[in-house]
């Protein structure tokens, strides 16, 4: 299991390769990557991500451990960046390894749902018009009911 909270960019290919290697008994690897999306009506200059050092790592570790047990994963990976990011940059990724694809897909969704509203990150969008904290969405909170 690997958890990384970092300001530096990560290499999706390299991380995926390293994660997939050495799991001979795992038939399925799922990865999800989140990217800074530009805004159609008000071009995004940058996204700033704040987090709670200490709690962030602990919360992500707990989520990954829960996912490992619940979906019988062979391995799990969570990388999440903080700091100033530009449109098109990768914000985060999760990867899951399971014997079969259903568990790998579900575990990735579980991790994403929890990461959205239970990991202490806050996004701020900076545009020509100014800077605004991204509001949480009620559907993100509702998504947890599924689990």
């Amino acid at each position: 299991m690997k958890i990384s909270v970092q300001d530096a960019p990560f290499d999706l290919g390299q991380e995926t390769q390293a994660f997939a290697a050495g799991h001979r008994d795992m038939g399925a690897i799922v990865t999800f990557t989140g990217i800074v999306r530009d805004l159609p009506d008000d071009p995004l200059k940058a996204m700033e991500i704040e987090h709670y050092p200490g709690m962030t790592e602990a919360a992500l570790t707990e989520m990954a451990e829960t996912a490992m047990a619940r979906f019988s994963l062979g391995d799990a990976l969570v990388i999440h960046r903080f700091g100033r990011l530009l449109p098109g940059e990768m914000i985060m990724m999760v990867a899951t390894a399971a014997r079969h694809r259903k568990d790998a897909f579900e575990a990735a969704e579980f991790l994403m749902d929890y990461l959205k509203s239970r990991a202490p990150f806050w996004k701020r969008e900076i545009t020509e018009k100014g800077a605004d904290w991204v509001a949480s969405k009620s559907e993100d909170e509702d998504a947890l009911a599924r689990w």
Binding site: G34, Y52, M55, H80, I91, M92, M112, L115, K116, S117, R118, A119, P120, F121, W122, K123, W133, V134, A135, S136, E141
Partner: peptide, 10 residues
């Protein structure tokens, strides 16, 4: 103790 708005990770 920490206070903050609802989280917006991912």
């Amino acid at each position: 103790v920490a206070f903050f708005p609802p989280m917006t990770g991912g």
